[in-house]
Design a protein around this nucleic acid. Structure first.
Length: 145
DNA sequence: GCCAACGTTGGC
DNA sequence: GCCAACGTTGGC
C-alpha cells in the first residue's frame, strides 16, 4: 500500500463533485506531466491518497482510494497520457491547509511543500498518518479502509 | 493579477 | 544535445 496526493482546482473538479461519483469513482483525467503520469503508473488498486484543493482553499479536504490502475486518458489526443480512477472514501473533519503543512516540522519534506507544481505526488506513510491526525481522521481507518 | 518555478518545445 | 523562448501551475 502506497500513499498519494492529488491536486485539483475546485473550480475545475471539486471534492463535492468527486463525492457525487460515489463508489464507482471517476477517471483522474487531464494530467499532462510525465512525473505525475509516472506516479499514476505506480499506483495499485486500494492505494489511499489525499484530495487537495489548489488555488481556492489550498487545503486537504478528503481521502480517496484508487479503484482502477493506470489506463489511457480518454481526454488526451496522445496515447502517452494515462490516468487512474479514484473514488472518495471520506471527508476529513478538519481540512489541513497548506499553511499548516508548512508550519509542521514533521511535514517539511512533503512534495506539496517542495514542488508546488506537481499535481500528483507521493506521500510517505509517516506523512500520511500525521496529516490524518491533524485532519481529525483516525489513521487506522484512513489507511486500512 | 502577478510572477516564480518549473516543464516542454524547437531552432540551431 | 544545448538552451532560449514559451506555456502552465499555483501560491501570494
Amino acid at each position: 500500500m502506497r500513499y498519494w496526493l492529488y491536486k485539483s482546482e475546485p473550480a475545475t473538479w471539486s471534492w463535492d463533485q468527486q463525492k457525487e461519483k460515489g463508489a464507482a469513482g471517476e477517471e483522474w483525467t487531464g494530467v499532462r506531466n510525465y512525473q505525475a503520469r509516472n506516479f499514476m503508473r505506480e499506483m495499485s488498486v486500494g492505494d489511499r491518497g489525499f484530495f487537495y484543493h489548489s488555488n481556492e482553499g489550498k487545503e486537504i479536504v478528503g481521502i480517496v482510494e484508487v479503484v482502477k490502475e493506470a489506463h489511457p486518458d480518454s481526454t488526451a489526443d496522445d496515447a502517452k497520457w494515462e490516468c487512474v480512477d479514484i473514488k472518495a472514501v471520506m471527508d476529513v473533519p478538519k481540512p489541513v491547509s497548506l499553511e499548516q503543512v508548512k508550519a509542521e516540522p514533521k511535514l517539511k519534506d512533503m512534495v506539496l511543500v517542495n514542488n508546488s507544481r506537481l499535481s500528483v505526488q507521493p506521500v510517505t506513510e509517516a506523512e500520511f498518518a500525521y496529516v490524518c491526525e491533524l485532519a481529525g481522521v483516525d489513521p487506522e481507518k484512513a489507511m486500512k479502509g
